[in-house]
Design a protein around this nucleic acid. Structure first.
Length: 583
RNA sequence: GCACCCGUAGCUCAAUGGAUUAGAGCAUCUGACUACGGAUCAGAAGGUUUCUGGUUCGAGUCCAGACGGGUGCACCA
């Protein structure tokens, strides 16, 4: 089902051609939702943009355009306004028709993309033997939501959790495992025990040089494939993954793959060889580095940095002097794998903004290697505490992810306690309202802005919050509960009241918003849409009695409730938020 | 030093280069409670979009500069 925006855009193009005006190459005919309901439902600045390109009078062109424009089946006669805007007001007939077709459309009016891409989305990426913390909130939920949305839009999406399962910290962990591990504690809370061990060894190594040496020896043994150390490492990975699966399952997050850094170990040496052979990397001070190829302007070159007015090399190191490999090496090998095994057209990295330089280097290196893949760093800002600084505990550590959700659920429980529901149901509802609140607080923000983490705000019952949205959904269900399921929805609809009209227009825009999100990877646009839909529905609900009405009016209103219900559910689902029938 | 990101109402945040009036939510004030779930709705008030220039018919948005905040910059990930 094409959206109104698509339809109007096509018709405008047809009108241009009919008027013998060929749009200059690259010129896109844009139709947007009207900025103000005074101007109708949709508006286009096509005449203005085109007039500019052709150097003619925009209002004149708009008039010509309207003469050739055939939109009678969609809207009233378009109006020219201001410097040359075209305003479109959809007719009640076309809206009634749209409503009828929405009730029978599995895709809820969201067209599938014309050219599906194979997209690998890399997000969350926690480390082995370390607890997830607030820093993982943004990557995990942004990534999950984008994956759901891209999939629903028709792309082939592969989610890959690039676990940090290989690195220098394992020297200390293995040393600690051998000398101070408490098996009982490990059974109880594996990650916590591994963290304890790591911290103690770390502190000890700082004071005692011989401990540090011992850790380094353990690390080298691990890297050389020592059976015992490899076994310990595997157990660390397993117990951590077991716990991670539990957390992800609770949060409703799914990955198609868990390919950690270690999965690429044996590809690193050949990769570096290759880079050397291809002349992309060279040895410098004993390390293997990728330097600038001098083809870009210095300001745009990720391999240059300005120091005291001079542009100096900022190489990307792929092999240390001691022979060790790095983050960038693994990332390059990972890209190879994703292209070779999964035929990736695109790779999206949902990783914080501080890593921008790293990705610019890795992307540039990949392009220089002649790989054809679209790589995008979907960056995001920080979560701040109430004081406006990085969200930390009083002791300066980052706040644990599990603790955040525990508290969210507990606080939600306080509110749910007042409801007239069974204890089991209360617990269940508190659980997912708490989770939903944290997710929604994240996803309703613009990803680049730092935001303040606030319990009171995210769990408020009013305003732009998950509880408000879920409540709106519950109300749409309660209508049908009242009918005891004895209702058949007829596709025959007729729009009479203004509130019905406004709601229908809003429902029809779901198909536009879903695609808008993917233009700049911004689930907050969908969050805003869902909130506006809930709002619009509440207004409609207040203004238009449903059960007390009759005939086609009643049927139309029931259809409005049903479609709203489905779109709210789907919209929230695309944000990774579950709904409930009652609360 | 250089690069990137941010600067919008008292607070927390929106706003695809568009329209006399830059939107929401909190908080504040005024209405609607014999309630299809009031966890709601209708409304009021609140702004020099940090500042200065520029491009444009048109700028919160694009460009240049200043100021303020954050982050990152050679063998960690």
């Amino acid at each position: 089902m094409p959206t109104y925006r698509q339809l109007l855009s096509e018709r405008l193009l047809a009108a241009f051609l009919k008027a013998n005006i060929t749009p200059p190459e690259g010129l896109i005919i844009e139709v947007g939702q009207a900025s103000d309901s005074r101007f109708g439902d949709y508006q286009s600045n096509a005449a203005m943009v085109m007039a500019k390109a052709l150097k003619i009078n925009p209002r004149q062109l708009a008039t010509t355009l309207i003469e050739h424009l055939d939109v009678a089946d969609l809207c009233e006669k378009p109006e020219i306004a201001g410097p040359g805007f075209l305003n479109f007001r959809l007719t009640k007939e076309t809206l009634a028709q749209r409503l009828s077709s929405l009730i029978n459309d599995d895709r809820l009016g969201v067209p599938a993309v014309n050219i599906p891409q194979r997209i690998v989305i890399d997000f969350s990426a926690p480390n082995i033997a370390k607890p997830m913390h607030v820093g993982h909130i943004r990557s995990t939920f942004l990534g999950d939501s984008l994956a759901r949305i891209a999939r629903f839009a028709g792309h082939h999406v592969i989610t890959d959790n690039h676990i940090g399962d290989w690195g220098t910290q394992f020297g200390m962990i293995i040393h600690g495992w051998k000398t101070r591990l408490n098996q009982e504690a490990l059974q109880k809370d594996a990650i916590q025990e591994l963290v304890r061990v790591y911290r103690e060894v770390n502190a000890e190594a700082k004071a005692d040089e011989s401990i540090l040496t011992s850790c380094k020896t353990e690390l080298v043994k691990l890297q050389q494939g020592d059976a015992e150390n490899l076994g310990i490492w595997q157990q660390c990975v397993k117990v951590t993954l077991d716990q991670l699966h539990e957390i992800y399952s609770r949060l409703g997050i799914h990955f198609d793959h868990y390919l950690g850094e270690s999965a690429y170990n044996d590809r690193l040496a050949p990769l570096v060889e290759n880079l050397l052979n291809e002349g992309i990397a060279r040895i410098s001070d004993g390390a293997t580095c990728i330097f600038s190829d001098g083809l870009k302007k210095p300001e745009e070159d990720p391999f240059l940095i300005n120091r005291d007015g001079k542009w100096e090399p900022a190489p990307c190191i792929v092999r240390k002097t001691d022979g060790g490999f790095l983050y960038a090496t693994t990332d390059l090998a990972t890209i190879d794998h994703r292209i070779r095994e999964w035929q990736a057209d695109e790779i999206w990295y949902v990783v914080g903004a501080p890593q921008q330089l790293h990705f610019r280097q890795v992307f540039e290196a990949t392009h220089r290697r002649g790989k054809k893949v679209r790589m995008i760093h979907i960056a995001f800002g920080s979560i701040l505490g109430p004081d406006g600084k990085m969200f930390k505990t009083r002791s300066g550590e980052s706040v644990g992810l599990i603790e955040v959700f525990e508290e969210a659920v507990e606080r939600a429980g306080v509110v749910v306690a007042e409801r007239e529901l069974g204890d089991d149901e209360k617990a269940k509802i508190a659980e997912f309202i708490g989770i939903a609140a944290v997710k929604y607080a994240e996803l309703s923000q613009h990803r680049m802005t730092d935001y303040k983490f606030s319990w009171d705000k995210m769990l408020a019952l009013q305003g732009n919050t998950a509880p408000y949205l879920i409540n709106a959904y519950v109300r749409t269900r309660s209508i049908f509960r009242k009918l005891d399921g004895a209702v058949t929805l007829d596709p025959t609809c007729e729009i009479t009241e203004d509130a019905e009209r406004i709601l229908t227009v809003k429902l029809a825009q779901f198909g536009e918003i879903v695609h808008d999100v993917l233009v700049d990877f911004r689930p907050n646009l969908l969050a805003q849409y869902v909130y506006e839909l809930a709002n619009t529905f509440h207004s409609f609900y207040e203004a238009c009695p449903v059960l007390r009405s009759e005939g086609t009016v009643r049927n139309t209103r029931l259809v409005l409730c049903e479609v709203t219900s489905r779109i709210l559910k789907k919209g929230l689902d695309l944000l990774g938020i579950q709904t409930t029938e009652r609360m």
